[in-house]
Design a protein around this nucleic acid. Structure first.
Length: 275
DNA sequence: ATTGTGGCCTGCCCGC
DNA sequence: TGCGGGCAGGCCACAA
């Protein structure tokens, strides 16, 4: 996915439909609907509702509806939120240089997602604006009443106290802890490698081994990195990113980067600096 | 209970 | 040039 940074851009795009009434629901891809709700019943529930807020927690985007329901949108690795009509005007106004209706621009690993056959879910509104998810790999999903309590504090605003709690857990590798959405919500693979590289912390190190000073330092790097990469324009704009390939070298010290699998994800890190 | 694996899909890039 | 395998920003349901 889209990590927290991209989903935040989607959230801003979705603010364009706040106050609009849903007049069309295209949820024909039953596989994309999670939580046991079917296409027909979901359409019945949503039709006529007004979106009252667009919220985000981690990588989960939520549309609050005036009848009390919450519509949760997840994007997997290749999902994108697109908008058209009055909503798109607001998006292009708020994101300089962004293409109309496309808040993030070309997404890594998701080329070709403009293809209409990749549209997995769409909402139409009474003012003729629209919002839809394009997701070639179908890794995302739409859910009614997502369980927000299963997500930890948002990584963009996590406090040191919260992070200290999230890092409890003995031998669990630091990277696995940071990417566990129940502990901290929003950190994906690229962002995680960048944060640990900036913090000079090994991804393999047990999360529980961080002392108070290390937790504080990690918290500062974490929030600063999210802010920095948000400003640059995405999770893939980190300083480590160009070196995240076989044979890559540390941008700071030039040491050969290690490529390991940690927490089930490919991890690049500098064995000379990250301890 | 935790940890590992497969699955969902498409597209790109590499090596043969 | 063509083709096949590996790999990709996520996360869920299973099995062990």
């Amino acid at each position: 996915m889209p990590e927290l940074i991209e989903v935040e851009a989607y959230r801003r795009a979705a603010e364009g439909v706040v106050g609009r009434r849903i007049s069309r629901v295209d949820a024909t891809d039953a596989w994309y609907l999670k939580g046991g709700v079917g296409p027909g019943s979901l359409a019945d529930l949503l039709m006529g509702s007004v979106v009252t807020a667009a919220r985000r927690r981690g990588k989960l985007l939520m549309l609050d509806l005036d009848r009390g329901e919450v519509l949760g949108l997840r994007f997997g690795m290749t999902g994108r939120l697109l908008t058209a009509g009055p909503a798109a005007e607001q998006v292009s106004a708020s994101l300089a240089g962004g293409r109309r209706g496309d808040p993030v621009g070309r997404l890594l690993y998701s080329a070709g997602s403009d293809d209409p056959r990749f549209v997995r879910f769409a909402l139409g509104f009474s003012d003729a604006s629209a919002l839809w998810i394009s997701d070639p790999r179908r890794l995302g999903g739409v859910e009614l009443g997502p369980d927000e309590a299963r997500l930890g504090p948002d990584a963009a605003t996590v406090t040191v106290d919260e992070l200290r709690g999230a890092m409890e857990g003995g031998e669990l590798p630091l990277k696995a802890a940071l990417m566990d959405q129940r502990r901290v919500a929003g950190v994906g693979n690229l962002l995680c490698d960048e944060i640990l590289w900036r913090a000079r912390l090994s991804p393999l190190r047990p999360a529980g081994s961080l002392d108070e000073a290390a937790v504080e330092a990690l918290g500062e790097v974490l929030t600063a990195t999210v802010a920095d990469l948000s400003e640059r324009g995405g999770s893939h704009t980190g300083d480590l990113q160009p070196s995240r390939e076989r044979g890559g070298r540390c941008p700071r010290c030039g040491a050969a980067l290690r490529r390991d699998e940690v927490g089930g994800r490919t991890t690049y890190w500098c064995p000379a600096e990250q301890v």
